[in-house]
Amino acid sequence: MNIVVCVKQVPEPTGTNRIDPKSLRILREGVDSVLDPADEFSIEAALQIQEANPGTNVVVVSMGPDRALEAIRRGLAMGANKGVLVSDANLAGSDALTTAKVLAAAIKRENPDLVLCATESSDAYTGMVPGGIAHHLGLPLLSYAKKLTLAGGKVQIERQTEAGFQRVEAQLPAVVTVTGSINTPRYPALKGIMQAKKKPVDQLTAADLGFSPEQVGEKGAKEKVLGWAPAEQRKAGTVIKDDGTAATQIADFLAQLKVI
């Protein structure tokens, strides 16, 4: 069985993204970059399947600058077998649809039974890439999995909803997006870090995947970012002075928020 996990290197998510005012792209130079923490859940899900089904091949695929290799290495250190990095100056400025198209072409080469993605990346947040990949590969997409099981050539998930969950299944091959509640990602064992250097990583260009420079990157983008703005500052809280009704007021407030 072949599992492909899509990963992305993102600026350290505890910091605030800095934006290049001219290109309106996220500045990636001079910032600490890490494997998107959201991707660790998909890698962990793949590795758990691998542990239960010996012989399973886990491939981590990423599109990004050369340094995105570090994110792939982290996946290999956790236990994935192989990496694929699509890296090409022509790809800079690609929009979500182009990214999905290019990733789908790279994933197809791996002949996957299952493609795992995070629900969205922690930096750009479009959440469109997994759907795009499923479209280009002609595969079903099971989204927001908080649980994933494989049996009889099918994948079944519990899809997280606000009220509870839905149980959904699809015939393999399929694309699944996983949420942060699906598992607790492992730390890479130090031996895994040492071995990761020896694992194979295919480095591909857009041309290798059959795309011309016009079809990808900024030129091929159909979506244009117009601007960025920081989130609104959180407003000061309400102070309730206890005149004997404070408990009721707090309960009403929480009920309004639907937390109780």
Binding site: R73, R74, Y187, L190, I193, M194, K197
Partner: peptide, 13 residues
């Protein structure tokens, strides 16, 4: 590079 990655895991842990 390997040593730096190892230290990163130890720090996170």
């Amino acid at each position: 590079e390997t040593e730096r990655e190892i230290m990163q895991v130890i720090r996170d842990f």
